[in-house]
């Protein structure tokens, strides 16, 4: 008897190739997004907004309409899309460099306006695409290409706890932090993203999901060690959970 164990999402382009390094967390999250688009049956109604960083190549993977944005500005582009086409499903896919470093002002104001869009922010605690420099989210003492002695918070300041900050925005409807790094965390992430998608479909308002994700290449770790690092270290500094949910 045959049993279906895996089916590729219809949202993916046939024979697409990820542009990511082995063990990168982006693939897990993009996979969840594709599954959710299938589950909600919104492929033909979705406009995705890409950003600058490893998160950029959405049109290479997804059978979706995609509009690109300058570095940090995808919440604004998404605002323009959603306001002009309020019946379309609009999400931004950004990294911590884009949404939390150069574009945190835009992230907050989009939350404050309560735009009915969904933001998925991959936090891998560095600028991945440019080769592993320190971003606003790099952990205290984290060694990166631009903090070779470790991030000294007395000189470079503290990491940004974005989900906690976005949750203070009255316009935000749903704010959560999840992670990919174990099958349990993966399942939780899918549940949280599903909620963030459902919110937009229900016209609830702005949903912000920060996903702690691995960057084995720039962390100088094996994929397995990188996942362990998320579970044991990154998710200790950046607490997982739902920080705001106006629907509960």
């Amino acid at each position: 008897m045959e049993k279906l164990v895996y089916q590729e999402s219809k949202c993916f382009i046939e024979n697409f190739k990820y542009t990511f390094c082995p063990g990168c967390g982006h693939g897990y999250v993009l996979g969840i997004i594709a599954q959710l688009i299938d589950e909600f049956n919104i492929q033909g109604e979705t406009i995705a907004v890409s950003s600058v960083g490893c998160s950029i190549f959405l049109e290479k993977f997804f059978k979706l309409d995609v509009v690109g944005a300058s570095h940090g500005r995808s919440p604004c582009v998404a605002t323009g899309v959603k306001r002009s086409k309020p019946n379309k499903f609009v999400f931004t896919y950004q990294g911590d460099g884009d949404a939390l470093t150069i574009g945190f002002n835009e992230t907050c104001h989009t939350a404050l306006r309560g735009e009915n869009i969904t933001t998925i922010c991959i936090n891998n605690t560095n600028f991945g695409m440019t080769g592993g420099q320190a971003s606003a989210t790099s952990l205290p003492n984290q060694k990166t290409k631009t903090t070779p002695f470790g991030r000294d918070v007395s000189k470079y300041g503290y990491p940004i706890k974005a989900a906690e900050m976005v949750a203070t925005c009255d316009g935000a409807a749903f704010v959560a932090r999840c992670a990919v790094g174990s099958s349990k965390l993966y399942d939780d992430t899918k549940k949280i993203l599903k909620k963030a998608f459902q919110n937009q479909i229900n016209n609830v308002g702005y949903s912000f999901v920060e996903v702690l994700s691995s960057c084995p290449t720039n962390w100088g770790m094996s994929p397995v060690d990188a996942n362990r690092h998320i579970v044991e270290n990154v998710s200790k500094y950046y607490k997982l959970g739902v920080f705001k949910d106006i629907t509960s």
């Binding site: 509009v67 300058s70 500005r73 582009v77 323009g80 899309v81 306001r83 002002n105 835009e106």
Partner: peptide, 26 residues
Amino acid sequence: RIFIPCESELAAINMVIGAGSTGTKA
């Protein structure tokens, strides 16, 4: 119609891009 008082000129022009990308006059 749509009016948004933006957080910056960066936001304003990028919202124009978003609306323009759907073929909307902005």
